[in-house]
Nucleic acid binder design. Sequence first.
DNA 1: CTACGATCTAGAGCGAGGTCTAGATCAAGT
DNA 2: ACTTGATCTAGACCTCGCTCTAGATCGTAG
Lengths: 140, 140
Amino acid sequence: MATTETSAEPLSIGEVAERTGLSVHALRFYEREGLLVGPVQRTSGGRRRYTASDVDWLLICVKLRESGMPLADLKRFAELVRHGPGNEAERLRLLDAHRQRVDARIQALEECRSVIAWKVGVYADHLARGEADGLWDPTA
Amino acid sequence: MATTETSAEPLSIGEVAERTGLSVHALRFYEREGLLVGPVQRTSGGRRRYTASDVDWLLICVKLRESGMPLADLKRFAELVRHGPGNEAERLRLLDAHRQRVDARIQALEECRSVIAWKVGVYADHLARGEADGLWDPTA
DNA sequence: CTACGATCTAGAGCGAGGTCTAGATCAAGT
DNA sequence: ACTTGATCTAGACCTCGCTCTAGATCGTAG
């Protein structure tokens, strides 16, 4: 069980890709873009070695991205963390603003869902009754 | 109250833009891409005249897009409707598949939100206690 | 008639967020 | 030593979904 454990052993980029769901390309891209808190360590041969906290950070990044945070905001957040203690209020503001956007997005999606569900119902009814009328259809 | 009513009067592209939230550019683009059910009528001078059902369709489009349906799927849906009665089962499948994707997306967002809310809580606690420790922070 | 804003077409351009390529190097197995 | 697969860098390229431009025309108010 040495390959799947959550140990202190540094991981290769491929292993981190597996664990985070990001592609190795994306991992290098994120690093170039300054989205990581610290520089990733390297082996003598130049290969990246990710620590557990690198992976933790990436997992947070994945959630923030998945919820629609732009890379620019993620970068800003990374910069704040990189800069160290003293800016927690700003980090909080950034995260909380994002949380609000996520809430709004969820609400918007729920509204869309109800419109779509209604339309699905219209078609389902129509098919159940085997009729060609009663549907809104400009070509009918 | 002639300018804001929901009448049978055809509307100019600018009026439709106002009512749907799409830009006039986007409206022309959608038309070019075949996302509309029928061809938009024109005045003798060549200007577009949208009917109420054009607007209804566009409002559906807006909801589908807002909920993440790709233009390609929207185009497919438009083609089905344009083709007329007889393919309602496929329309239903398309819409229902989308509804499921929306549900999945909402769930994913809710998970993200809880991760983010937890992180917000961590920072809020930290600030409330005025401490510099207890935070996960690789640079500390 | 003259202005002026809205609209027209065709097509170029853009921003986000990666993805992919080429060619070299590293590391491990045999 | 040789082969194989993972990784390296720099930078080109891609998809999506519009957005914008240029230059012409329409249509309405004065």
